[in-house]
Amino acid sequence: MSALTFHMQNQLEAVDPMVLALKSHLQDKVADEVLMRFDICMSEALANLVLHAKTEQKDAPIDLMLDFDGELLIVDVFDPDGTAAFDIRKQARALSDVDVMAESGRGLGLILECADGVEYGPVQNRRCLSLKFQARN
């Protein structure tokens, strides 16, 4: 599969449809367990970006790129224009440190727990969260 690009409105209503659109390109190509972890990561990453990213341009779309070579699945989530840098690797709390009765605070830790690789940094003059998954366990 060649890399696919997607654009999502920076709105909470757009998160679930975006995740389902991404998953539709992966059905029967990756293990169910991997698809589940992908679903968790994308739902958390996109919701976090929409709800919590500090941005001066709330209307700027979120661009994504999905790349899969049959073994390694990579999804890049580009920060919308005008968004302050936010490296989830430095902000996430380990799930084991979150009170089981807490009503929030699990999202970023879930991404680190469920993705096989997490990177964040500049790509082509933009900042990008890159999540990697091995297609088969």
Partner: peptide, 16 residues
């Protein structure tokens, strides 16, 4: 078919 951390948080809030 799916729930995220917000869904779990809501459930915890109800339990509390």
């Amino acid at each position: 078919s799916f729930l995220d951390s917000s869904g779990l948080g809501a459930l915890t809030g109800v339990l509390k």
